[in-house]
Computed example of a mutant assay.
Amino acid sequence: MAAKFLALFVIAAALTQGQAITQITLPDEHYTFLTNPLIGKSLSIPKSFLDTLQSCNVVFPNGATYEAYPNNRLPAGPVSFLHAVQPFTSCAIGFLGADVSYSGTYELMSLVHHSADNSLSLTRQRFHLTLVEIDPWKGEVEA
Rank of each mutant, 00 (worst) to 15 (best):
D28L: 10
V10D: 15
G97N: 00
G18V: 02
D51I: 01
S44P: 08
Y102R: 03
I21C: 04
P61M: 01
L38R: 11
F33N: 08
M109E: 14
F127P: 00
A7M: 13
P46Y: 08
L38G: 04
S48L: 11
S103M: 04
E140W: 11
V141Q: 12
S48Q: 13
A3Y: 09
L131N: 05
I21N: 07
W137V: 15
H114P: 02
A7V: 13
L129D: 02
L129A: 06
F5E: 15
T22N: 14
S115Q: 15
M109A: 12
L34F: 10
F60T: 03
E140N: 10
I134W: 07
T52A: 09
A2Q: 15
A7Y: 11
F9G: 08
S48V: 05
T16W: 15
A116F: 08
T32I: 06
F9H: 12
A7G: 12
A68P: 02
S90N: 14
V59Y: 07
S103E: 03
C91E: 00
V85D: 15
Y102K: 04
S121W: 02
A68S: 05
Y69S: 03
I134L: 12
G104E: 02
A98C: 03
T123K: 08
E133C: 07
A143D: 14
P46L: 07
L96G: 04
E133M: 09
L74Q: 06
V58T: 09
S80D: 13
Q54C: 09
L122A: 04
F95C: 10
L122P: 00
V85W: 14
T35K: 00
S103C: 05
G104M: 00
E107D: 08
A92I: 11
L38W: 12
